[in-house]
Design a protein around this nucleic acid. Structure first.
Lengths: 332, 332
DNA sequence: ATCATACGGGAAAGCCCTTGCCTCAACCCA
DNA sequence: TGGGTTGAGGCAAGGGCTTTCCCGTATGAT
């Protein structure tokens, strides 16, 4: 691999001059030298070593993102938003998939710190786990102490910049919608219990039940993916055959529920959460609670890239109901 | 940020020793020193600087991936496969989204080279553009000369390791399926003309038409995304009202076509391509040509991580027909 | 008691850049 | 003509780490 030395030698200048020309430094350089250096760069297919540059230079340029899984549409959308603003800012984005493993999450935070990223955005690391939270806080603090910036998406046991979707009222709205349609007994397909996203949405749903004087919803836990959603729907319906509506805590599971209901040919209302792109294309089109995922990602990245502020900034993101065809009054 | 020096000083050893302990070098070190160093690391929240490490050390550790857009399910699946094998190998994956901009693709190749990645996988950079191909080849050659490994997914004007899906016969199978059902006149919703994916699939479709002695399919070009697929369906149907079947060159556009047809309440067969996860959940469930996307990603990464071989290895990936409910005989 | 052999540990040479500081010339004004 | 600017470019000091020697010391063999 050609180095700056090679370029400088070939152009007959010092590495200092070559470096200045290559980086478009403000120091004036004669046109002749500039040409020679540029020719040398082209001839040698020279590309500056990013690591050396990072070591020698001052600014950190990359940013990191930690998500559960980019191939999950939920995180794909968030990531899209994140990337848009990071790229606009000319930054390399390092994406890390934890696959919902808290340990991996911790490792990635270290890894990103090791890579001297300028900022990191944590999406979906709201676990109910005291030891995890403490460890994470420690690592993040160490990182921030060294000048790193952190923004999280979702609720966290941590003070700092954050974009937090209003999951609780989203859950409430979902329940409200179903009860208003006349459902009395509803089931919930929840995500993993240790995620705050799950518990927050569930809390909203329960509040809606209380508000309407209805029995607490029946809950089955699944994994936020389609197939587990389908399976949980089966469980729920066999245990509680009288349910007339199901609230899934994300759209993937709602899609699974829909598939299951179609298979067993039952007519039950289903409401999802997130409004992923495909929600409108399933049949019946999915009623869901929308979260502006791409915007949330963009906001989080903006926070992370802006200078640290003395007091933490928290952007609350409202959820909205999107009515489509998958919810309807109960058959009597 | 604490450095190795800090750790060494605190533990009362040399940086050499500290480094050896931290990296689990094979050199024997007394237990006492090991404990002291480990304590120092913990106290200081020390994390080795990845850049310095890369500079000083020998092995390159990261790998790069260039895709059109991770949030597109097609690439999301491929990426998932890629990551699985890269992570197993303990490597950091840098994902770059070109958003179908060839210039950006070129830039990213440079960037990955600058970051000294051990290998890179290019997915979806098959453009019909001589200048682009030449430039890309040049950059890749320079990279390989410096020891980098490259694997591509899809057809390329380039000899080298590759995983190439059999798009042509996939297209043929799609056509075959429709003609066998009795359709005479079919329309095609194609992707961007400058992508080999588009042209290869189209070629297969045309061959099927010839084989069955049918007129060449009518083509409308779109962008591989849902909405453009829906729009193109409208165009196609207004220009050629007698079409009884539509082949979309990917599932996203097929979903768009389905949506359009539902809106205008027309019954037309639709076949997609790729078999993305949601294909089975739309209504009617989408008949499609499956490509094992995650496996393809995994294969490509395996190729890229394996030592360079004298003659290029090309893994051909067969496409298979998945029959669901969206294709049926024409109404007479 | 002597010599060879491990073994544990340190000194220091890079890895490839950026950048502060310095030098040298040419140039200006007085 | 002399002193002060200014413009162009080079020297060399890091930046944080790995790794190759190299050197004592304790161990074993003779």
């Amino acid at each position: 691999m050609a180095t700056l030395d090679d370029v400088a030698r070939r152009a007959g200048v010092s590495t200092a001059t070559a470096s200045r020309i290559i980086n478009g430094s403000s120091k004036p350089v004669s046109a002749a030298l500039r040409d020679r250096v540029e020719a040398a760069v082209a001839d040698l297919h020279y590309v500056p070593n990013a690591h050396a540059r990072q070591l020698a230079g001052s600014g950190r340029t990359a940013v990191g993102v930690v998500v559960h899984d980019v191939s999950d549409p939920y995180f794909a959308e968030i990531t899209r938003g994140l990337q848009r603003v990071a790229t606009t800012d000319g930054r390399l984005v390092i994406i890390c998939n934890t696959y919902r493993d808290p340990a991996r999450e911790l490792d990635y935070v270290e890894l990103l710190r090791a890579h001297q990223v300028a900022a990191m955005v944590l999406a979906g690391s709201g676990y109910h786990d005291v030891a995890f939270a403490r460890s994470l806080r420690g690592k993040l603090r160490a990182y921030e102490l060294s000048g790193g910036r952190v923004a999280v998406i979702g609720r966290h046991d941590r003070t700092g910049d954050a974009v937090v979707p209003d999951n609780e009222s989203g859950g409430f709205m979902a329940g409200e919608h179903l009860y208003a349609l006349g459902h009395r007994d509803i089931g919930v397909i929840a995500g993993p219990r240790n995620l705050t996203t799950t518990t927050d949405r569930l809390t909203g749903l329960r509040r809606a039940a209380r508000t309407h004087g209805r029995p607490a919803p029946k809950v089955a836990y699944a994994d936020f993916d389609r197939d587990s959603g389908a399976a949980a729907t089966g469980d729920l319906l066999s245990t509680h055959p009288r349910l007339t509506a199901i609230a899934a805590l994300n759209d993937s599971m709602a899609v699974g529920a829909l598939a299951f209901l179609r298979d067993v040919d039952r007519r039950v209302s289903v409401i999802g959460f997130d409004d992923m792109p495909i929600a409108r294309d399933v049949t019946p089109a999915l009623t869901t609670i929308r979260l502006p995922l791409a915007d949330m990602g963009a906001q989080a990245m903006s926070l992370a890239l802006s200078p640290a502020s003395p007091d933490p900034r928290v952007e609350r993101v409202p959820a909205t109901l999107v009515e489509r065809a998958s919810t309807f009054p109960p058959d009597r």
